[in-house]
């Protein structure tokens, strides 16, 4: 493959990450509104929100340190990078070899640590509370996520996502029962990591239940815009990682324009369906108490471990 094409597609993938992520969020919200018999502001609402925030003047607390101001940019960069590493359109893009799935988890952890530190920087009660809860969810979700990723890594004898996708989609069709466990666990981790409903409510500002929002309370204007954008990219990243692991069909292995278009179409359909599915899950479930979250994520962790065990029993 020519390197130039690779880099062009890589760049397209980055742009797609940036552009599609607010759209995905808008779509999920719109689906939720429909399911709740409400009209909804349309799928483009997140873009309007971002533009509005960018235009405003930033207000910073007196004792905000440079760390606090740096974090939004940092968060944004981490999430974008994760989006370029995951094979979304094609498997042989040049940037994919920079990081494997373990590094991907590391990137998410890095972003989380920075956000938590920034939340504690001002020293208000809510920021502290949010940071503590976020780190609590993090230390439970991160191992679960890694164990989910271990199952395909054992199957394909590789931790590189491109090789995983190649093994799962481009060779003969084989059903991997262990992936059923991985998928159940991944869904739980996705809900927790992206502060979706059973764990956290993305649209609440009710003090007792806030996790993610509590950390952002001190951010405003462009900083808030970047953080919000970064969290929508994070959701998108989790979606495309999920696609790469569980429904990898459609991701191009070559560099032809036609297969790329096909991959793009497949991605669009997958995003639409998965977004709708997430909306249904969120509509059907109630937010759980914070004390139940360790249980929820502990279950996810156990299921992921069970997945690797099943792999050894049934597929080895």
């Amino acid at each position: 493959m020519t390197n130039l094409y690779g880099f062009i597609f890589q760049f397209i993938q980055l742009i797609m990450t940036l552009v599609l992520s607010p759209l995905l969020l808008g779509w999920i919200n719109q689906c939720r509104y429909w399911l709740q018999n409400r009209q909804g502001p349309g799928v483009f609402q997140p873009y309007r929100q971002l533009v509005k925030l960018f235009c405003k003047d930033a207000v910073l607390a007196d004792n905000a340190s440079p760390l606090f101001r740096m974090t939004p940019y940092f968060l944004f960069a981490c999430m974008c990078l994760a989006g370029t590493i995951v094979p979304v359109l094609a498997t042989n893009l040049p940037f994919a070899s920079v990081a494997d799935v373990i590094v991907l988890v590391g990137i998410f952890a890095l972003a989380r640590v920075f956000l938590a530190l920034a939340a504690m920087d001002i020293g208000t009660g809510f920021g502290n509370l949010g940071a503590r809860r976020e780190m609590m969810i993090g230390f439970l979700a991160e191992p679960a996520l890694l164990m989910v990723l271990f199952t395909p890594a054992f199957i394909s004898h590789s931790t590189a996502l491109t090789t995983i996708v190649d093994t799962l989609s481009h060779t003969r069709f084989i059903i991997y029962p262990s992936m059923a466990f991985a998928m159940a666990s991944y869904l739980m981790v996705l809900l927790a990591e992206n502060s979706r409903i059973p764990v956290d409510n993305p649209s609440t500002h009710l003090e007792l239940t806030m996790i993610h929002e509590a950390m952002l309370l001190e951010y405003s204007a462009r900083h808030l815009a970047l953080v919000e954008w970064a969290s929508s990219i994070k959701l998108y990243d989790y979606f495309v990682i999920g696609f790469a692991l569980f429904v990898p069909w459609g991701i191009a292995s070559g560099n032809h324009l036609s297969s790329m278009l096909l991959a793009f179409l497949a991605l669009f359909i997958k995003l639409a369906f998965a977004g709708f599915g997430l909306a249904i899950v969120e509509t059907l479930s109630a937010k759980m108490r914070i004390f139940r979250v360790p249980e929820f994520l502990g279950t996810a962790f156990m299921l992921a471990v069970l997945g690797t065990l099943t792999h050894f029993l049934l597929e080895a």
Binding site: V113, A116, L117, M120, F139, M147
Partner: peptide
Amino acid sequence: VPVAAAGLVLATALAAYVMVKFYALIFLGQ
């Protein structure tokens, strides 16, 4: 082996929690 790996991962993830506590309480906030 996967169980051991899970234990290791859990320990390292907890280390991040500890370190946020360490750094944030000393250097951040008021």
